[in-house]
Structures are given as structure tokens and as C-alpha cells.
């Protein structure tokens, strides 16, 4: 059996390209599952009474490691399995609560081939609810430069994220 490793290549990526939008209806289960999957036991991510009466916010809210997992999924849905994350930077501006519909959108801010021959796409990504940005993320992801290239084979000095 041949493995399905379909992935984009750098030649098919240009600055200004828009990534497909991901829209997701967030429930309390989304928040709690994400917190526990990331081993984050803090009560504001699962205990409504604590969130509202101790923290003074409207509900439990999505934790940062789970947002990172959402961003990773969003990026690799676009690249395919050969896409290899190099770095991500987040800036939190607001919270994501149950009953929100979160929208993740992204745009290619640049591409390059570095000194080691590794192809990179830089992405500006936003997680928003009702048009308000809740978290912004800059991601740098290595993508194959040709159909027989695979960024995951890079090690040591040949991987400069």
C-alpha cells in the first residue's frame, strides 16, 4: 500500500495566498476536552462556577496549549503531512468561550528557501469570534521544495527554524 503523503510544495505557494477558513462551533466539551488533553487542570478551563464567581468572567475558556493545537491542525490541514512547523508565536487578545463560533483564517506573508535549502512559508493567522480577533499567530512552516523533498528528514545544522 502506498501511503497518502500528499502535500503542497513551495512552488505552489505565493505571498498573499489565503488559506481556507476553518469555522468551528465551540462547546463546553471542546473547552474541557482541550484542557484535559493538554493536561491543564486549572479550574477556569473546566469549572463554570470558578470561572464566573472567582475569576469574574462569563464562562470557562479555551486554554493556550489547546489553541496551539488548533493552529497546528489548521496549518497542516493546508500543507499536508510533509509540512513541518518551525515556530509559532501567539498573542492572546481575548478568550474563546462555549457557544462561540470560532473562525481561523490565515494568509501567506512570505516564502523563502534558506541557506540550507529548506523551503519556508510564513503565515499570519487569526482566531476570531464574531469578527473580533481573540488570538493572533505567526507561524513558520517548512514545506517541500519539490515532490521528492521532505523537511522532516532535516536534522542538526540542516534544520534552522
Amino acid at each position: 500500500m502506498v501511503a497518502d503523503t500528499d502535500s503542497i510544495t513551495l512552488g505552489g505557494v505565493s505571498e498573499g495566498d489565503e488559506l481556507p477558513v476553518l469555522s468551528y462551533d465551540v462547546s463546553a466539551t471542546t473547552i474541557v476536552l482541550g484542557a484535559l488533553a493538554s493536561r491543564d487542570w486549572r479550574p477556569m478551563h473546566h469549572d463554570y462556577d470558578f470561572a464566573v464567581n472567582r475569576n469574574g468572567i462569563r464562562d470557562i475558556f479555551m486554554n493556550t496549549p489547546n489553541q496551539a493545537a488548533w493552529f497546528e491542525r489548521y496549518v497542516t490541514d493546508w500543507t499536508g503531512p510533509k509540512g513541518r512547523l518551525g515556530r509559532m508565536t501567539f498573542r492572546m487578545k481575548g478568550s474563546v468561550f462555549p457557544k462561540d463560533t470560532m473562525t481561523i483564517s490565515g494568509r501567506v506573508s512570505g516564502t523563502e528557501i534558506d541557506d540550507t535549502g529548506c523551503g519556508w512559508a510564513d503565515l499570519d493567522i487569526e482566531l476570531s469570534v464574531d469578527g473580533d480577533t481573540k488570538t493572533s499567530c505567526q507561524a513558520r512552516v517548512a514545506v517541500p521544495t519539490s515532490s521528492d523533498d521532505n523537511p522532516w528528514t532535516r536534522r542538526g545544522d540542516h534544520w534552522q527554524p
Binding site: 503523503t5 471542546t30 493538554s38 493545537a69 491542525r73 497542516t76
Partner: peptide, 18 residues
């Protein structure tokens, strides 16, 4: 569990051949 929490179907994590 982490992949399930964000519905991440990347075959790297689910398909041994990939």
C-alpha cells in the same frame, strides 16, 4: 486524545504507513 480534541486528522498521527 490531543488530536481528537482539535479534530486533527493529519495521517502522520493516525496512519502507520504515512
Amino acid at each position: 486524545t490531543s488530536c481528537a480534541s482539535v479534530e486533527n486528522g493529519n495521517p502522520l498521527f493516525w496512519d502507520e504507513a504515512v
